[in-house]
Design a protein around this nucleic acid. Structure first.
Lengths: 186, 186
DNA sequence: TAGTGTTTTTGACTTAGGTCAAAAGGAACA
DNA sequence: TGTTCCTTTTGACCTAAGTCAAAAACACTA
């Protein structure tokens, strides 16, 4: 899924608009395990993932890393709060694989928002989609057993367990690595 | 907090725009314990709460009601998914007090979105605010103890425990009523 | 192919919070 | 001021999942 196709799948743009809009994005090849945002910093860019994958995570007081979200192909990746409100990020962001992303700065994003009504609309639609995903996860974490949450995750990110360490998935699902290991055993 | 002031607090509208936009909202006085959306139905309206309070909740398979969110003064209230995607709602919505709300239909909302770039922007900003709240709650539910979640809720909805039954709050926080009662004891 | 570091699994034990049932409080009303 | 209904609290017991520590499996690199 490349950026143009992704945008077109949400809103019809004509070729000129699409060309101008995508020109504000910068193609970047980012190696595995690169930090894109450090906890406490202000997020400068929003990334569209064309290839690879990333995660957001934070450090608990006891020093443990907790995965907050996985960002796969065809998704926007950033610390939402930090990017849009230009406030210090609670999370860090890193790539989990060598990744091909398109990045855009807050200034360019705001410029596009103000220039194109359609772009603003896209922003709204994408926000609502994300909201709906987070609500789903909230329900999973709040009301389901560890085993049910694991099944939910397999539905949401089918082949993730071959791609990232078990501990990342366990903390994302709000359970210990040992529990996830026992669940997978069957 | 009335509708106009709320809108102005997010985006500067001039008096004519504000007048036209608010003219698409309908003032409604809704008695306590009125269902606004029934689980399974498609949400027809979005409500702005000027006075009173509501909640969204759903019925678990075992017949228990679980509160999903509280909507206080100065908030938009709806089943987000259902309203924006016109899909069957997973939640029911009801008032918890006699309430004064301003409602708008999906058609009028879409009309305003397409007519006013600014309105689209407001939609985006409000969505991101909601997203950020839901992420906070997710973190609370996933990583905090029952006691910490209770404290979190007091910060988010200060005087709620005087206004709604204990069981509603307990299920919102993802704990049993008995546990919440024991926590409150001290 | 042995050696070293990392990730995952297993086992034994602990604990936060759930469940069920009964008692205690409150509010409304005759 | 007692009766009824509803909400909250208390008590006794249970269980899903956490913790800690060791063993096993895997993955590099020399």
């Amino acid at each position: 899924m490349n950026l143009s196709n992704f945008l077109l799948s949400i809103i019809p743009y004509n070729p000129e608009e699409l060309k101008e809009i995508t020109s504000y994005f910068e193609k970047e090849l980012i190696p595995k395990n690169t930090k894109l945002i450090e906890q406490g910093q202000i997020s400068k860019k929003l990334y569209f993932v064309e290839k690879g994958m990333g995660r957001s995570f934070y450090l608990m007081e006891d020093g443990k890393e907790v995965t907050q979200w996985f960002f796969g192909v065809g998704k926007f990746m950033t610390s939402v709060d930090s990017f849009f409100q230009q406030s210090p990020s609670i999370y860090s962001l890193e790539t989990l694989e060598d990744s091909l992303v398109y990045s855009i700065s807050k200034e360019n994003m705001d410029f596009l928002f103000s220039k194109y009504h359609k772009w603003e609309k896209l922003g709204r639609l994408v926000s609502i989609q994300m909201l709906s995903k987070v609500v789903n996860k909230l329900n999973a974490v709040q009301f389901q057993t560890a085993r049910e949450r694991y099944d939910y995750m397999l539905a949401e990110f089918p082949n993730i367990s071959q791609r990232v360490p078990l501990g990342y998935i366990a903390s994302y699902l709000g359970m210990s690595q040992e529990t996830l290991s026992r669940i997978r055993r069957g």
